[in-house]
């Protein structure tokens, strides 16, 4: 394939990277511009705040996956992957709704729900680090297990619940921005600081990209990988509150979000200079998808197109970046 060979040369490669990097931000802006011109009310502050709020659930889950991908390496089969995130959210939301309905006080209910998310993360970390299962399989199996537990708890029905916390999240506003949007930004800020600007984050990247070098440098690789699954589990717990607020309780079918979460985390890669998973990139990818869905709604385009556009976006992005990383080779 001639164009990939051209891209393999240093100068052209640098140029290609530039096009890809600026191109993806450019494409993002272009999509926004087109939607801004064509879709009525798209740029109104209320609508933008809405998109942020509606992106909170997917975004927070995708942050969790991003951490796992950073800590495990970006090879999708052998590297870091957490397929149980969406199921974990479902279980946590069900746990919170049940606890809240059973009369536990606010602190207990919140604490136990987050603990549930952490426990699932610990299970994943245990199977990956101690039992050495490939993450794809380990989290696939735990996804089944967790989805089953959620079904047992909810009997496959919606558990409506209502609490001051959920009311605040669903209805609260600060500076005319909904609380869910603040949640998304707060988690992005916290994880962004932790992953992109702390020694821990730097080491997590090292562990993911060069585990041998990281081990030689004295890092306890397993501990870092384990911690990335704990972060993911915690993200699922936090996202569960957003979901419970959005739907006024637990809902069925939260597992359907899984593939979108995976898509977002891998799309986020393209917003980084070195084509690695990163928190700001994931935030941008989340918002890009949120704006697309929102724009489609405003333009009255059938929502059936959303999946297809998402699929084409992934393929475009990955084809570009894999052409630039030919040296990795492999199937």
């Amino acid at each position: 394939m001639p164009w990939s060979e051209i891209l393999a040369q240093p100068l052209a490669r640098r140029l290609g990277l530039l096009v890809l990097r600026r191109g993806s931000s450019g494409a993002f802006l272009l999509i926004l511009a087109v939607l801004a011109v064509t879709a009525p009310n798209f740029l109104s502050p209320g609508n933008i705040a809405n998109v942020f709020a509606q992106s909170a659930i997917l975004g927070i889950l995708a942050f969790g996956l991003t951490c796992v991908v950073i800590g495990g390496g970006s090879n999708v089969v052998a590297g870091g992957l957490d397929l149980s995130l969406a199921a974990n959210l479902g279980l946590c939301a069900a746990v919170y709704s049940s606890l809240n309905n059973a009369g536990f006080d606010t602190v207990q209910a919140i604490g136990l729900t987050l603990l549930c998310g952490l426990a699932v993360g610990a299970l994943n970390g245990f199977t990956v680090v101690v039992l050495r299962l490939p993450p794809l399989l380990a989290t696939l199996a735990s996804m089944n297990l967790i989805a089953g537990l959620e079904l047992v708890l909810t009997q496959n029905s919606v558990l409506p619940t209502d609490s001051a916390l959920l009311d605040t999240l669903a209805m609260g506003e600060w500076l005319q921005v909904p609380a869910l949007a603040w949640m998304l930004l707060a988690v992005a800020l916290l994880l962004g600081l932790l992953i992109q600007h702390s020694p821990y984050g730097l080491r997590l990247y090292a562990v993911g990209e060069y585990p041998e070098a990281a081990r030689a440098a004295g890092l306890r690789v397993g501990l870092y990988v384990f911690s990335s699954y704990l972060i993911a589990g915690l993200c699922a717990g936090v996202a569960a509150f957003c979901s419970a607020a959005y739907f006024s309780g637990s809902t069925t079918g939260s597992g359907d979000m899984l593939l979108s979460v995976v898509a977002i985390a891998f799309l986020g890669v393209v917003f980084s200079r070195r084509l690695v998973a990163n928190i700001p990139g994931t935030l941008l990818a989340t918002l890009l998808l949120g704006f697309l869905i929102n724009g489609f709604q405003l333009l009255n385009i059938a929502s059936f197109w959303v999946n297809g556009v998402q699929g084409v976006l992934i393929l475009l992005v990955v084809a570009m970046s894999s052409a630039l990383r030919k040296e990795e080779g492999g199937l």
Partner: peptide, 10 residues
Amino acid sequence: GITPFLATLG
């Protein structure tokens, strides 16, 4: 040259 996981996901 897309990895099978992401290609088939798309």
